[in-house]
């Protein structure tokens, strides 16, 4: 924990409305480097909306988002990514018909020459394969075959690929939306190890999960949302696990 450094990401008094639904009612949060921040809340609490605002899928109606202390406008997922924010979506956003390396660089292909419009540039396949292989090795992800389509890989392998893709490009913040929801015990463990590693490499990590064990194991700090409000913030450990659950449920 390096709370003395300024936060990588800060959200201030964020409001978001979808027609009559007021999904975020002045939520604020800070995320620091080398820290896993758990974002907790029941279904409909506003977690996903908040995450989507940070990753550029939605725009906030009121409030501010700051990166390294500078206000930013995140109009699109691409804008968020170029600001150094990577998101691992719940549905993984993987391309089944492409290989892991092709998945890594999809939408951000290494290509040239640079004077051509992006779409007409030629892919630098070897460079991308090499870079992707290096990342996969660094993260110790085990894949049956590096040049096979992602369609042929297991749930855990796919999750690992999605997380690894985020790490290739994350410079500041990685958001993981229920990364273990669809996984078995052993595969979950591997993905959580990856999350650990992301933090140790100096990223800020925001983790959405319903699994309190994972929160206690992994998170340095937890923020609880309920009905669009931030209702609590604490350092999760075994002793306050019950407290967290009652905050989430709203049954103090």
């Amino acid at each position: 924990m390096t709370a003395s450094l300024p936060p990588v990401l800060e959200v201030r008094a964020a409001h978001k409305r979808f027609g009559a639904v007021h999904a975020l009612k002045g939520v604020g949060l800070k995320a620091y480097r080398n820290e896993v921040l758990a974002l907790l809340g029941d279904n409909g609490a506003g977690k996903s909306t908040l995450i989507k605002c940070i990753s550029g899928v939605h725009e906030i109606d009121e409030g501010e988002i700051l990166i390294d202390g500078q206000p930013v406008a995140l109009h699109s997922p691409a804008a968020a990514r170029s600001a150094g924010i990577e998101t691992v979506y719940q549905d993984l956003a993987l391309f089944d018909n492409l290989t892991p390396a092709q998945n890594f660089f999809c939408g951000r292909e290494i290509a040239g020459p640079s004077w051509l419009p992006k779409g007409l540039q030629f892919l630098r396949t070897r460079q991308m394969d090499k870079d992707a292989a290096a990342v996969i090795e660094r993260l110790k992800v085990k894949l049956p075959k590096f040049d096979a389509q992602v369609a042929l890989m297991s749930g855990g392998q796919r999750q690992a690929i999605a997380v690894a893709r985020a790490t290739v490009f994350a410079r500041k913040l990685v958001i993981l939306d229920e990364p273990t929801a669809a996984l078995g015990l052993r595969e979950s463990r591997k993905v959580l190890d990856l999350v650990d590693q992301l933090r140790d490499e100096g990223n800020a990590v925001i983790l959405i999960t319903h699994n309190m064990e994972h929160v206690v194991d992994l998170a340095d700090r937890a923020i609880v949302l309920r009905q669009g409000h931030k209702v609590g913030e604490l350092r999760p450990d075994r002793s306050n696990q019950k407290e967290m659950v009652s905050m989430i449920m709203g049954a103090e």
């Binding site: 997922p77 993987l94 391309f95 492409l98 092709q102 290509a111 779409g119 540039q121 892919l123």
Partner: peptide, 28 residues
């Protein structure tokens, strides 16, 4: 097979929503 645009075609066909989120100009 060798141009970025071709890769985008496969990405759009593979998972259109993901392609959009990855910043690929899906409509184009």
């Amino acid at each position: 097979k060798t141009m970025v645009w071709g890769r985008w075609i496969y990405a759009v066909g593979g998972q259109p929503d993901a392609a959009r989120r990855m910043g690929i100009p899906v409509n184009g």
